[in-house]
């Protein structure tokens, strides 16, 4: 079972509980966005809130809880938050580049070009493919 001290003070329990509720709801909303949004380019924005706000709330709650519980400064969760802040944009950028590259290679239309007339945008994407391919092979 859970090992929470029985005489935990409300000054610790209430902020930790608020941060945990906030973090879990935000995590759920982010993944719901991942599931519900229609295009990949919109879907990639869903987990961003999970990574920043959700993980941030959980890490803050953990820091607060262990600092008060052990009566010393426990801030090694900052390592995880710094690591996530460094790596999440890299992953997102690589995935976006992958998606754009694959969509261009397959001649698939990007959702942001939809309002244009279909014939013109189709020609544009094939022209882009022809431009991009040698670049990709030379680089």
């Amino acid at each position: 079972m859970m090992q929470i001290p029985a005489d935990i003070s409300p000054w610790l329990a209430i902020p930790v509980a608020l941060l945990l509720i906030c973090g879990s709801i935000i995590t759920l909303v982010g993944t719901l966005g991942l599931l519900r949004l229609p295009h990949f380019y919109q879907r990639i924005h869903g987990p961003a809130i999970t990574i920043t706000f959700g993980a941030g709330s959980f890490l803050l709650a953990s820091m607060l809880y262990f600092t008060v519980l052990q009566q010393r400064l426990v801030i090694h969760e900052l390592l995880i938050s710094a690591f996530i802040m460094l790596t999440a944009p890299v992953t997102a950028m690589l995935l976006m580049r992958t998606a754009v590259y694959r969509d261009l290679r397959n001649g698939r239309q990007r959702p942001d070009t939809k309002p244009e007339p279909p014939a013109a945008s189709g020609q544009a994407t094939t022209a882009e493919v022809k431009q991009h391919r040698p670049d990709g092979e030379n680089a």
Partner: peptide, 22 residues
């Protein structure tokens, strides 16, 4: 206060597992 934190922890675990399912 122990009960509150327990309930909140169970709720958070449920939410995170639901997020993993999604």
């Amino acid at each position: 206060m122990k009960l509150l934190l327990e309930i909140v922890l169970y709720f958070s675990q449920f939410c995170v597992v639901l997020a993993m399912l999604l």
